[in-house]
Design a protein around this nucleic acid. Sequence first.
DNA 1: GTCTATAAATAGATAGAC
DNA 2: GTCTATCTATTTATAGAC
Lengths: 219, 219
Amino acid sequence: MNGQAGQRRDTRPPSKRPYHHGNLRAELIEASFDVLAEHGLSEFSVAKAARAVGVSTASPYRHFADRDHLLAAVAAQAALELADRIGIDVASAGSDPGERFAVTAGTYVRYVADRGAGVNVIFSSPLTRLDQTELSDAGRQLISLLLDLAEHAGNAPRTQQALLLLERHIVTAHGYVTLYRDGFFASRNATVETIAERATQASRALLRGGTVAMLTPHV
Amino acid sequence: MNGQAGQRRDTRPPSKRPYHHGNLRAELIEASFDVLAEHGLSEFSVAKAARAVGVSTASPYRHFADRDHLLAAVAAQAALELADRIGIDVASAGSDPGERFAVTAGTYVRYVADRGAGVNVIFSSPLTRLDQTELSDAGRQLISLLLDLAEHAGNAPRTQQALLLLERHIVTAHGYVTLYRDGFFASRNATVETIAERATQASRALLRGGTVAMLTPHV
DNA sequence: GTCTATAAATAGATAGAC
DNA sequence: GTCTATCTATTTATAGAC
């Protein structure tokens, strides 16, 4: 058994690669979402994304300067996709402003569970420092969309209070999906849907609890 | 200024290591906290912990079977330390049950910012699967302590509602400190203290918002 | 633009000297 | 129990052929 007998097939592990044609840049971004969804940001690598597309590990560097620039493109697209999904879910949420806001917590949980990229990627320090206008613009639009919903949801549409409400809303939804992916809810047999629903209920509770003025803890 | 003058120290990069004496196991755990606090779980490595102590990268394997077993020991100690800090902060929080519960959100934020290990480590899937009784016991005690505070804080001390309140509380505190470490609050000049205070305020809002029965999402 | 090949880091883990 | 040395694997990134 010195070696698998009588086969010349497959003798060249990845040799004679079939040469890739097409829009590699877009395919790498899409494959990166798959890697993020399966492995998470901490185990993301350019090599994994390249293998998922079926190209050599050198090819991505023709389209992205380095790992962070690929991630920045992914993050920008994530912000756009997330805004899209929010728009869809809000449209189905009825007319109550509080409910239109709260359901976006569920949207967020489902999106991050599905695609692996949330505000931790979209607003992560290393990526923000790249000064990629595509990413910062998409991030701003996402926050603007959510802030608008928060302003209508809060009884007092003051920007300061809406910002605080939005902060708690994002933090809670992100905490839910992050801990879900880390296995924190593994004891109870939790699904993405149940976690999304619980995040939405937490957002409703936050809204009911109201926002005390931010500037008066020590003033 | 070719280099700090007059030193023969450091001439041998890591050669002739001074041979370590003492309680290496405990020192490795302590060094692991430093690594977690500085680099986070995703960049934790046995090699970094070993270098922080000043021993060879092989030495840790005399005390821990593999990377996960070292992390499990760290996680168990984190649960004990966190419970200690919670006891201290609750004792200073006065007599109002809601306030005694809410302040632990700030405790959690400060602890994870300081030590780098929170419920994502203490209850992480790979570590839970090791079936280390030291870790699972410490984790249970931590939850038990917090659940007791939640039961007193909620107007209805039903266990189901207290569990839901506690879940939201942990998720929110964890979301705050996680996103803080990821740079999400970098635009505003946020400190650990301000984030801890905001997490506590969010917990107060959750408590005010109350817990609707889990099984009546549309009632 | 994609390939093959390679260099330099870093990490997990083991073997064997002391 | 700690060391030095080593092996394997993975990744980032570059060089040069096609």
